[in-house]
Design a protein around this nucleic acid. Sequence first.
DNA 1: ATACCGATTAACT
DNA 2: GTTAATCGGTATA
Length: 193
Amino acid sequence: MSKLPRSFYLRGDVVTIARELIGQRIVSNIGDERTTGIITETEAYAGIDDRASHAYGGRRTARTGTMYLQGGTAYVYLCYGIHHLFNVVTHEADVPHAVLIRAMHPESGLEVMKARRGSTKLTTNGPGTVSQALGIRTTHSGIDLLDDLLYIERTGIRIPENDIRTGPRIGVDYAGPDAALPYRFHIDPRQLP
DNA sequence: ATACCGATTAACT
DNA sequence: GTTAATCGGTATA
């Protein structure tokens, strides 16, 4: 299968993109190890009007500046001083939309991912664990997802509309009315082929 | 220079 | 269900 093209990321509707990323494959070649997984959970962050977004109100700093790059860029930041959270930037340059990858179903490179996670069991539910398994760190913020180090490829997996669950985003209670927006999408990994 | 806090996780009860 | 861990980013001065 092939890398998602630039045109996929440049589209304007970040919520649609978040839904469409479910079932696609993340490929990481970080550390010369190929590790992959199928995306099972995402959240959309809709730019300067979204109180849950780091870019709310047009905020643009050394960290959040990455979100203002063109669609198809990786935005990685440190949360709670410990967790590296991986996001996919969408929309054209200067419009800071992004999709947070919250969970994946591990596919290949299982032993490498286990070793990175430092556990005999391999769990990749939660944005911090996904990044850790794939070797993604804040140093990767700003890299192009059309290069070969880290990218997303189309799987062709067809997921019935009814199998995709929708709900409010996790951990954004501070966002007032925007905390209730149905911008989270996920599936049960057992529904994957 | 200083103070506050988070798009979380794992290990508890 | 609860809570400690942990530190860079951000705002304020």
